[in-house]
């Protein structure tokens, strides 16, 4: 659990973070979102004391971060940055094993942990362990970055625009993997991004920041339905809000069991989003889809009315 009480940070005359109070529960994925310069990165970096806060208090599990030695503190907190910051002169395996080695784990245990993480992140050990960062694609490098952050099994993970430099397809893949990882590991994650779609798709809770202050916080649907002001509304995409919300709802939540009618000709996966279903309907000019499971077996149907009903409910 991370708590910020009235935290302030000034750089010279400029106030980067202005009296923020925030509580991030254990196991929660909290996304700080806002335009550049809104103080979201600064807030993140104050948690592991890469930046020291000027006012207020930051607590980890009830203890002020200043009461920890900063090196000890950082070894307890996973940290992922946009440009990965992998050490170019170290192999993938050595990069991932950094924090366990700093913590003086026995060698065999470090190696075991490194291989475990490589498997977890979909990096075949035989293929990648001895590669150097320059031999990796952007997506592979960031997987290594995430593995390195998870190496010593920290409770808290700080991620500073980790997927910002990746192409859209790789980014979506990694977002998906992060969601799956989080479903298994239940870390307390603070994730910084300026990409609202990324924020909506990952967040348990969004914290919208503007000019060093928190403008609004809440769950993705909550924010979409009830933006606090015009700024939040524009961040959320204005007229595209309907589609953004539809992107958060799974077909499975809206489908009806198979009726007596003939199966509709077009199919949609159970786990697809309503926005994808809508897109399929628009494309094929139909108002009814057959919902299938992972094995492509029909399990239900989705009509346009049901799909739209999502708003009415």
């Amino acid at each position: 659990m991370i708590e910020l009480f009235d935290v302030t940070k000034r750089f010279g005359d400029e106030t980067a973070v202005d009296g923020i109070t925030l509580r991030i529960e254990k196991g929660e994925l909290c996304v700080l979102v806002g335009t550049s310069g809104c103080g979201k990165s600064t807030t993140l970096r104050m948690v592991n004391r890469l930046i020291e806060h000027d006012g207020g208090e930051i607590h980890l599990d009830g203890q002020p971060v200043r009461s920890f030695d900063e090196v000890t503190l950082r070894r307890r907190i996973g940290y992922v940055i946009q440009s990965t910051g992998l050490f170019p002169h170290w192999t993938v395996a050595r990069n991932i094993g950094l924090v366990p080695r700093l913590l003086k784990w026995p060698r065999a245990r470090v190696r075991e942990r490194v291989e475990e993480l490589m498997r977890l992140l979909g990096l075949p050990v035989a293929e990648f362990a001895d590669k150097y960062p320059r031999q990796l694609s952007g997506g592979q490098a960031q997987r290594v970055g995430v593995a390195r952050a998870l190496a010593a099994d920290p409770d808290i993970l700080l991620m500073d625009e980790p997927f910002g430099a990746l192409d859209p397809i790789t980014r979506e893949t990694l977002q998906h993997e992060l969601r799956e990882l989080q479903a298994r590991l239940h870390k307390t994650i603070v994730f910084v991004t300026h990409d609202m779609d990324e924020a909506l798709s990952l967040a348990d809770r969004l914290v919208v920041m503007h000019q060093g202050r928190i403008v609004q916080q809440g769950g993705p649907i909550e924010l979409l339905h009830d933006p606090a002001n015009a700024f939040v509304e524009s961040l959320l995409g204005g007229m595209d809000r309907g589609l953004k919300e539809a992107a958060l709802i799974k077909v499975g939540e809206r489908m009806l069991p198979l009726g007596p009618r003939l199966l509709a000709s077009e199919r949609i996966a159970y786990g697809a989003s309503l926005s994808q279903a809508l897109s399929v309907m628009l494309w094929h000019q139909v108002d009814r889809l057959t919902v299938v499971d992972e094995e492509d077996i029909p399990i239900g149907e989705l009509s346009l009315r049901r799909l739209l009903g999502a708003r009415a409910s």
């Binding site: 950082r74 940290y79 940055i81 910051g85 050490f87 950094l98 924090v99 700093l102 390195r148």
Partner: peptide
């Protein structure tokens, strides 16, 4: 040395001496 390598080294919890010697 790229700034992000520095940032990562510090963020991972390396001491100043470790950053100097190992990075």
């Amino acid at each position: 040395i790229p700034a992000e390598v520095h940032e990562a080294a510090r963020g991972m919890g390396m001491t100043a001496g470790q950053v100097l010697r190992q990075v």
